[in-house]
């Protein structure tokens, strides 16, 4: 897949130094600093024709070899006319990881951002309804962070018991 037109759009909008590209198999990745990510996505949507947000996810790089930042957020954009895919990647850090919401650009980002918030605690500013989506309201941890144990912290068994005599 040819990505030259996409790159030229990004160069004209963000400048030469603002992003780093890399490629692995057929994945073409663009790394953007967190404060420029909204500009980059806006340019890609409006000028390069990436009309679908195919995927939005996050990774916790706590124990990853040679990692410099704590959380990476990945946007997979798809151009439905040409079938071109790009992966826009950015990094955020503790204590309060925060990114601008892309809900105004793609309505499909609604639940995807809520899920990232639920699992990693990354706040998306400007999201209309940022609540927990998969876990109960009272849950206080972010389970996909690497410092949360696989078997949890006994939340799963904190419920009343109904014996036969009382049912």
């Amino acid at each position: 897949m040819d990505h030259r037109s996409t790159l030229s759009v990004l160069r004209s909008q963000l400048g030469e130094q603002a992003f780093v590209t890399s490629e692995f198999r057929d994945n073409f990745r663009i790394e953007v600093p967190a404060e420029r990510v909204l500009d980059a996505l806006l340019a890609l949507k409006d000028q390069a024709g990436f009309d679908m947000l195919a995927e939005l996810t996050a990774v916790d790089y706590l124990h990853y070899p040679n990692a410099r930042d704590r959380y990476g957020v990945v946007y997979c954009l798809l151009n439905t006319t040409t079938g071109e895919r790009v992966f826009v990647k950015t990094f955020v850090n503790d204590p309060d990881p925060c990114l601008p919401s892309v809900f105004p650009l793609w309505k499909g980002a609604d639940w995807l951002e809520r899920e990232v918030y639920d699992m990693f605690g990354i706040v998306f500013e400007g999201h209309p309804d940022l609540r927990r989506i998969l876990l109960p309201e009272g849950f206080r941890s972010y389970p996909l962070r690497k410092d949360y144990p696989l078997r949890g912290r006994l939340e799963r068994h904190n419920f009343p018991v109904i014996p036969r005599a009382e049912s």
Partner: peptide
Amino acid sequence: YAVVQGIDRFIP
């Protein structure tokens, strides 16, 4: 973390 390890813990 999320799955109950056996429903017999909570109902007969």
